[in-house]
Design a protein around this nucleic acid. Structure first.
Length: 868
RNA sequence: GCGCGGUUAGCUCAGUGGUAGAGCACUACCUUGACACGGUAGCGGUCAGAGGUUCGAACCCUCUAUCGCGCACCA
């Protein structure tokens, strides 16, 4: 219900004319037909935390959301649907009709994720929501294409590319994932033409491409084969004479040291073929079947079927020497997971501009990476960068703005006349437009600034920080940097105005408990919407952030989301407790003189927490921020302060009561504001419930540290508080060790001459659930009375019939423990080197500790001896 | 082959030179006036291994093992 109100108040809408300093984030656009995953939850929660925190700090905040058309992904999904429902391919429908169907699909399934992000509580400026296929955006993509073409950086050429036979398109190098694959290494015998009966043996993993061999090659220094140079060999399938050549690229150590050169189907072979001017024979179809009518046994077979069949054919003719099991790396399509086929094809390529500059802006920290070690990965990529194959044989996307003069052929042909421009040529009947679209990333790399109008850009570009998973560092992050440097509109001469972002925070990747990547097919990906239903959006957000380490993957465990929910409940309950004692005070002022020692303690800890989360934020350590807040709220505030303060809260003394409630309000108010970026809904609810501020908590300033200067002896008070708390813990342990139920009211006697303790007796009794705690400086305990040594003195349990034997045993254990520690400390102090070289404060600390331990020991022994 | 990151309690993880931590799980007690999605207490670690630096190492250095990731190779 709060979310709706925030939207109505236009709280998330950025004003480019604001005089406030700006803070901006562009959302990595999810796929239009995507649904929310835990990765999205993590990523967008982080962005929301940053945006909300900045809003509280008084920045004018723009968090710009949007979606990506996801060319191959969306097209594949629609094609699959078509095949299932109508048993048709996109070619059956034709381009126009197919695109109409995609739009239909988009209307039906698109944009779901936006609604899901709203359920998470994301404070995006929805009025600026963008899509990579918006008209203006599409025009910008075209313009960039044309500009780069005119600069000679984009060119059309016949090259070796990565072909995805399943998706039927070319891919960039980055979209190929190499995985080890089990197969065989076939040793095939090629007969020497000039020396019948002599064979050249070659090791290959791909016998099905033998028909495309156009040479045999060995290393020029390889003596084994030197005499064959210039001779020819019989190609065993599609029998033909092929030359035997020498080339430096061959590794004499591999297999037999001989390579069959297949320029059409291997990148290395292509280069060798180019050097030796070899013919290129392509024996594969675009969907990965054999196209070689001269070998009818193989023609039409799938490439993997053909591999087995080719081996069989060689076997029967005696040309297969052997086949060894072999494991090598094969490229797979990132999209379809089909094995990639290296293929020569006419495609569009981009020679990256500004690579040196892109390297420099990160090296010189104009753009900072968090964690910084990704800088190395980024640099490695840029230093070995290759031209980017940007054309995709896909219909869904930004069509390439290139036309070819109609001649003999109507397909793309780099040798024919090319026209590149926004509008079709003036005599369209003589031209045919390129069928292809550009790589989706060729549109997303403009995302940082093409999503903004000139005015917005003026205020909010460069963006403050980019939040993304590291797996798209090359696809997106690096390319956006290049794009910003090369063609941000209204480019400035100052490089720091052109970079797309100042910080990049790389999030973890969410894995399952076994460490596997989340995936639909594994079914190990929980539905975030169900998690929200179960644990609340705030519980999910907080739970996830608390376990999200920086620079490492997350092992997701639903129990940790449960903890997030539990924490939310805890916070809610303590707020309810506060509410029971009247309305909160927005201007809660504390009176330094009236503060209880416990209040001083909790305020001091609040100050420490404020400092700690401030420095954790600086390094984007969200898990530390969450953990600190969790500990502070639960331990320091609820368990200790509130419990101790109940003495004052329930007391008849109005002044004490008021002071305690004021401290409660002050701490709650500060805590809520610190938690708001993580748990926006709950904190807003409590904020308004207790009336802790005038407006929405969203624009409340972050808490400042409480000035404790007016409090006399802060450190003295704090030492006394921890002595009290330690005494409580020791006494509770004594009760538990004596097997007394925790609800049984019992009497404690504290033997001490320290008078200032008497004031804390009611609180000690409360925390110990004691019937009473009496002070007696000269208490003589009956033999067998359970006793423990505390910083405040010896505490005794008043119970009727003590079991002497058990008590002796307990004391014995206690003594052994203390003795052991005392020995360790003493040994250290007897080490001259330590005493001389360690900082004096550390040595002092050890001395004090040893004193305490010895004192404790003496008292414990005395107690034991009293047992007779 | 090159590079990066990890290895701490049964599980998930904090902890960058000075007495090993949290939550969950487990055990015992407890529905005591916010909270059983809770409270109290407890059990549980030669910090992957070996060497080194240091008065002192989970932490710094070297090597090894092991897991994961990226790049290159991949006939």
């Amino acid at each position: 219900k709060w979310y709706q109100r925030w939207l109505e108040n236009r709280d998330f809408v950025a004003n480019p004319e604001s005089s406030k300093p700006s803070f901006s984030i562009v959302m990595p656009p999810p796929n239009i037909t995507g649904v929310l995953t835990l990765g999205h939850v993590l990523n967008n929660t982080i962005q929301d935390i940053l945006a909300r925190r900045a809003r509280m700090q008084g920045f004018e905040v723009l968090w710009l959301p949007g979606m990506d058309h996801a060319g191959i992904g969306t097209q594949t999904a629609v094609e699959k649907h078509l095949r299932r429902t109508e048993n048709k391919t996109r070619h059956d429908l034709g381009r126009e009709e197919f695109l109409r169907r995609v739009l239909e699909w988009q209307d039906k399934h698109g944009g779901i994720i936006i609604e899901q992000l709203k359920r998470l509580g994301c404070s995006c400026d929805w009025s600026r929501q963008r899509y990579t296929l918006d008209d203006a955006y599409a025009a910008a993509v075209q313009k960039v294409f044309i500009d780069l073409y005119n600069k000679g950086l984009i060119y059309c050429g016949r090259r070796m590319i990565n072909w995805d036979p399943a998706a039927q398109t070319a891919l960039s190098d980055e979209e190929v994932i190499s995985k080890p694959q089990k197969g065989y290494l076939y040793f095939v015998r090629y007969e020497i033409v000039e020396e019948p009966g002599r064979f050249l043996e070659v090791a290959t993993t791909r016998p099905e491409t033998i028909m495309a061999d156009t040479a045999m090659a060995f290393h020029p220094s390889d003596k084994r084969y030197l005499d064959l140079l210039g001779k020819r060999a019989w190609r065993p399938l599609a029998r033909e004479k092929i030359p035997i050549i020498a080339d430096e690229a061959i590794d004499p150590e591999f297999g037999t040291g001989v390579l069959k050169v297949t320029p059409a189907h291997d990148a290395l072979d292509f280069e060798i073929g180019y050097r030796h001017d070899l013919p290129i024979i392509d024996v594969l179809t675009s969907d990965g079947r054999i196209n070689c009518p001269t070998v009818p046994e193989l023609h039409g077979l799938d490439r993997f079927e053909a591999r087995k069949k080719a081996a069989e054919l060689l076997e029967v003719t005696g040309l297969l020497a052997k086949a060894e099991p072999y494991e090598n790396n094969i490229g797979f399509s990132d999209r379809s997971d089909a094995p990639i086929e290296p293929r020569i094809s006419e495609q569009w390529f981009l020679r990256y501009p500004k690579t040196k500059e892109a390297l420099a802006v990160v090296r010189d920290r104009l753009i900072r990476f968090f964690p910084a070690h990704w800088e190395k990965v980024y640099a490695q990529w840029l230093e070995n960068i290759h031209d980017w194959c940007i054309s995709r044989q896909v219909w869904w996307g930004h069509r390439i703005p290139a036309w070819y003069r109609k001649e003999k052929s109507e397909t793309r042909n780099s040798k024919s006349e090319i026209y590149v421009g926004i509008k079709p040529p003036s005599d369209p009947e003589n031209w045919v437009q390129d069928e292809d679209t550009v790589d989706t990333w060729f549109s997303s790399w403009l995302w940082a600034y093409e999503t903004m109008g000139p005015q917005t850009r003026k205020k909010f570009y460069p963006t403050s920080v980019l939040v993304t998973a590291a797996d798209i560092i090359f696809f997106w992050v690096a390319r956006m940097i290049i794009a910003g440097l090369e063609f941000k509109p209204g480019k400035s001469s100052r490089i720091e105005d052109n970079i797309p972002f100042r910080h990049v925070f790389f999030t973890s990747i969410v894995r399952d408990r076994q460490g596997r990547k989340m995936s639909k097919s594994l079914g190990n990906s929980p539905d975030p919407l169900e998690l929200i239903d179960k644990y609340g959006a705030d519980g999910l957000r907080f739970g996830l952030m608390r376990i999200a380490p920086t620079g490492q993957d997350i092992r997701f465990d639903e129990r940790q989301i449960e903890e997030g929910r539990n924490f939310a409940t805890k916070l809610w309950n303590v707020a309810r407790f506060r509410q029971m004692h009247g309305p909160g005070d927005a201007e809660a002022k504390i009176n330094a003189q009236a503060l209880s020692i416990f209040a001083v303690e909790v305020l001091a800890r609040l100050n420490e927490t404020i400092d700690a989360i401030e420095s954790a934020y600086r390094e984007y350590h969200f898990n530390l921020v969450a953990q600190r807040l969790y500990d502070f709220v639960w331990r320091d505030y609820c368990d200790w302060f509130v419990e101790a303060a109940k003495t004052d809260i329930f007391s008849e003394d109005e002044a004490k009561k008021k002071s305690a409630l004021a401290v409660m309000d002050l701490v709650l108010s500060a805590t809520l504001r610190m938690l708001h970026p993580f748990m926006p809904h709950l904190t807003e609810e409590i904020w308004s419930l207790l009336g802790l501020g005038k407006g929405s908590i969203q624009f409340a300033a972050p808490p400042e540290k409480v000035a404790l200067d007016a409090v006399a002896d802060v450190s003295e008070s704090r030492r006394f508080v921890s002595a009290n708390y330690e005494t409580v813990q020791t006494a509770r342990n004594l009760r538990s060790a004596s097997k007394l139920p925790s609800n049984k009211k019992i009497r404690f006697i504290l033997r001490t001459s320290n008078k200032s303790i008497s004031e804390q007796i009611p609180t000690l009794s409360r925390l110990l659930n004691a019937e009473e705690v009496t002070l007696d400086p000269k208490y003589e305990a009956p033999a067998g009375t359970p006793v423990a040594v505390t910083p405040l003195g010896e505490i005794f349990l008043a119970i009727a019939a003590a079991d002497q034997a058990r008590e002796r045993e307990r004391l014995g254990k206690e003594i052994a423990k203390v003795e052991a520690e005392a020995r360790t400390v003493e040994a250290k102090l007897q080490n001259d080197a330590f005493v001389q070289r360690a900082p004096s404060a550390v040595v002092e600390e050890h001395r004090r500790r040893l004193n305490d331990l010895n004192e404790q020991l003496a008292k414990l022994k005395q107690a034991r001896d009293g047992l007779s």
